[in-house]
């Protein structure tokens, strides 16, 4: 019995967070796409398989998120990239990384006339503001009390309308 409980508990530990909504966030650091996958509310999504697609839908790379939900993948072309993650229990999320975020030294961009200084500066700035952007992105997902209250009110309103229509149809 105890053994069974221990097995169950370890299986639970291995299972990823069962939150509602998977989210993925990515930004460019030099020629790498760096990002993280997490569940709405902030829990990290570890070991989730993902794909990086090109602007035309072609497969660029395949990856799996690390234990802290992050991933890093080098790319070779300057174009829009779509990062798609999908877990086995049916959560899925996408994020589009615009070409403009990737350094212009990559092919398919404008003329590669960027000095090493500019590239280093771009990389440094990208690294600095990444936590901020991640925070903003996850903040959008936070459920606030007034959202909850609004939802409850709407439900009562909907059923109130139904009751009113019904009572009119059936007569006084």
């Amino acid at each position: 019995m105890i053994r069974l409980l221990v097995i169950l508990f370890t299986l639970l530990l291995a299972a990823p967070a069962g939150a509602h909504k998977l989210k993925v966030f990515a930004s460019a650091e030099g020629t790498d796409i760096v990002g993280s996958a997490y569940f709405a509310g902030g829990d990290k999504a570890a070991g989730v398989p993902g794909r990086i697609l090109g602007a035309d839908g072609s497969l660029v790379a395949v990856f799996a998120t690390a234990a802290d939900g992050t991933f890093r993948q080098g790319v070779t072309a300057r174009m829009d990239h779509i990062i798609a993650v999908e877990s086995e229990d049916g959560h899925a999320a996408r994020f589009t990384l615009p070409a403009a975020e990737l350094p212009s030294s990559l092919p398919e961009g404008k003329a590669a006339a960027v000095s090493a200084d500019t590239a280093a500066l771009e990389a440094a700035v990208a690294r600095q503001i990444r936590p901020l952007r991640e925070q903003l992105d996850s903040y959008e997902e936070r459920i606030r009390l007034h959202d909850l209250m609004g939802g409850i009110g709407t439900i009562f309103g909907l059923f109130g309308c139904w009751a009113w229509l019904q009572s009119r149809r059936r007569g006084p």
Binding site: L13, P16, G18, A19, H20, L148
Partner: peptide, 13 residues
């Protein structure tokens, strides 16, 4: 189902 409960390492509702 909007309120998440911590259940060990996972969060469920």
């Amino acid at each position: 189902s909007l309120i998440h409960l911590p259940a060990g390492p996972a969060s469920v509702h």
